[in-house]
Design a protein around this nucleic acid. Structure first.
Lengths: 223, 223
DNA sequence: AGAAATTGGCTCAATATTGGTTCAGGGAGG
DNA sequence: CCTCCCTGAACCAATATTGAGCCAATTTCT
């Protein structure tokens, strides 16, 4: 039997990590525990963990413990936290990437019932008499298109964008950029998108959505 | 068994919350009760609850109790929760939308230093002797490309994907799909992307990245 | 209205956990 | 014999948990 050296322990550790066992809190057991579990001295285990540390797989803090990088639950919350500072310009850029694709997916995947829901949101938005109502059904129109994209991840990203858009920097911006004329333009552009969806034409749907988003961006960011 | 720390309690709490046990009043038990139930001191439970508070999962009122939030932060947490169930197929679809764009942005926006960082990650990945190391620097390569895309929102979405990819359903899949031959292919594809970035050629960078992602998807989902 | 109980907010000293470091010894292989 | 690496132990410094007490806001009971 080959002798156990630190680098062997390191690869054994990596295997354990890959097994996902410690993913939960992103924290791996104390060196002393690991050492006894693997049947080696703490010194050896320390050197093994040091390999992982050099690789960047792991970070250590005196008194706190050793943590997997980019996996701890706090990081998820941190991501969301940082997202709250997203600039409208950045988000609009990404919307122009995702939303035409969502429209394209919807054109091929949506059920008749789902398309009806999209049409309904469009109709109510067009008939809305005040800005909050219009805005709500405008958002709903976009949301329902994502809803029939058949991609859960895409849907959740849109939910994120939706939440972010209801926060501080957007609120004023939307108010500033709104006008009766623009509402009319939005409605007709939505109509174009909707028509493409009903024709089951992914390419047109994607193009129409992109055109619409460019209009929105122009109004919002004032170019 | 490793010691129970506040963050562990926090994740345990989150589980209890998402199990819907306290949904009725939207109120969770007093700290003192929770502390004794989980077998920790009140101070520790307080710190655990503070995590949830920071995340916005919960609001506290002196004399009244602690309540689940029905507003923005909670829905944000819900989004994150639902995202954890994202299927690899869905995510790969979105990666193919976002990552070529990131590469394209990077080609035009990256500083020379940032490109060096990308090259460095590529080099280490190519020289890696074992799978975890390769995987780490492979991920780092992609991450650094996003890092110089100059779009904060895009970067954060990628952070999300990165975290999700470190969770359960992906682990086996990655292990299954790995082979020495494939590693070689990935390295050469990365090289193509890197070359395009260094040439400052957005179009080629985007195409190369897309081609790479299609390879990854094929290997991962087994077509 | 007023008293009592409940509940979160806060502080503090004592204790425990955990990574960081060092050192003396032992065993395997050249 | 010498080198290399592991073992075992002790101690340090950073951080966390404990357990207790008191306060302030709120609710509930009298």
């Amino acid at each position: 039997m080959p002798k156990l050296v630190a680098s062997d322990i390191a690869t054994a550790l990596k295997k354990r990590i890959s097994s996902g066992e410690w993913i939960e809190n992103g924290r791996i057991p104390p060196e002393r525990d690991l050492a006894s579990e693997f049947g080696v001295a703490r010194n050896t285990m320390r050197r093994a963990v040091s390999f992982l540390e050099d690789e960047g797989t792991v970070v250590r803090h005196v008194g706190r413990g050793t943590f997997l990088t980019a996996t701890n639950p706090a990081s998820m919350a941190a991501v969301v936290g940082r997202m709250e500072g997203t600039s409208p310009a950045d988000m609009m850029e990404i919307r122009q990437l995702l939303e035409p694709a969502a429209a394209s997916f919807a054109a091929t995947n949506a059920s008749a019932m789902e398309l009806n829901a999209v049409r309904e949101a469009h109709r109510i938005a067009c008939e809305a008499q005040d800005m909050p109502t219009f805005e709500h059904w405008d958002a709903e129109f976009h949301h329902r298109i994502f809803a029939c994209s058949r991609n859960e991840f895409l849907k959740e990203i849109h939910n994120l964008m939706r939440i972010l858009r209801n926060q501080a920097p957007w609120f004023e911006m939307k108010k500033r950029s709104f006008s009766e004329e623009r509402r009319g333009i939005y409605c007709s552009e939505h109509q174009t998108v909707l028509d493409a969806l009903l024709r089951r034409d992914p390419e047109s749907a994607s193009q129409a959505m992109l055109a619409h988003l460019k209009t929105v961006e122009r109004n919002l960011l004032g170019r």
